[in-house]
Structure formats: structure tokens, C-alpha cells
Amino acid sequence: MSIFYFIAFLSILFAVLVISAKNPVHSILYLVLTFFTFTIQYILLNAQFLAIVNFIVYMGAILVLFLYTLMLINLNKDSEPVKSNIIKIAAVLGGGSLLVVIVACLKQVGISQPVLLKDPGLGLVKNLGKVLFNEFLLPFEVSSLLLLSAMVGAVLLATKDPKTT
């Protein structure tokens, strides 16, 4: 349990550093560390497959692409957009009201009952595969269709004029 709290602390620390870092490339690297702490949490929960997939997909692919795009963008101080004061005031008001809502919600928080899995080995590849392809086959296939449609959409957006290509 103490490992959980330590890793959770690290996750939040790195997440805060992501938004407070001045340099965008540093932010991405802190985001990589944040995802790495998530991987450790999955391993602590005995969900090995989820841990390694999180590792490969988020740390190994998506964040590399983030870093790749950021390296190509010109991020000088003079090209940074400067917002007008009205927008700044609106942002402060919006953020403040969100804080009020969060505090109001926190007042009703109780200690949750931890769910104990009947099968502690559920996160292993074999068991996870059996559950996904028997019990949750329809939602699983529907979510794969969702990913496919997102991919088709991205290709459609990337080709500017279908006639010329």
C-alpha cells in the first residue's frame, strides 16, 4: 500500500510538472514519466498485459509522435501568442468556478469500498483474452470499429483535395 501512495505521489508530481514546465519538450518528457508511473501502478494491480500495452502504446508510440511534432514546430518566445486581458479575466473566472464545484464535490466524498476480484489473475493475457472474446465480445468489436472510423477520418483530413490526389 505504501508503494501505491509513493507512486501515486510521483504521478501527481510529474503531472503538475507537465503543465508548469516552461519548455514544451520538457513537458512531454514529464508526461512520459507520468505514463511510466501508470505502468508501475498496473503492475502493482497484477495487470501485466495492460501495463505492457500502456508502455508500448503510450510511451513508445503516442508520446514519441508528440515529441516528433513538437520538435518540428517553431517554439520561440516571439512566436508565442499573447492573449488579451479580457480572455485572461474570463479564464480566471472559469477556473475559479470549476474550483468551487470541485470543493463542493469533495465535501460529499466518502471512503470507497475496495473491489476484490474473484480471480486475482484476471489481468494476465490468457484470462483477459478469454473475458474480452467471450463476455465482452460486442463492446470490444464496437470499440475497434470506433478506432477504424477515427483512422479513416484522419486520412480524410490529411488529404486536402481528393480530386488532385
Binding site: 508502455f55 508500448i56 510511451m59 513508445g60 515529441l67 516528433y68 520538435m71 494476465l124 493475457v125
Partner: peptide, 25 residues
């Protein structure tokens, strides 16, 4: 002998690019 050994190798391979990218940048 972790039961996701092949995926572990794959994860390490995908992490390898960070060294090159960070150094180059």
C-alpha cells in the same frame, strides 16, 4: 520469465528511440 516476455522486448525496443531523439534535440 514474465508471461508477456515478447511484449516486454517490444516495449524496450520502442523506448530505445528516446535516447536518439533527446540527444539529437
Amino acid at each position: 520469465d514474465i508471461n508477456v516476455g515478447v511484449l516486454y522486448i517490444f516495449g524496450v525496443v520502442s523506448l530505445g528511440v528516446y535516447g536518439v531523439m533527446i540527444g539529437g534535440w
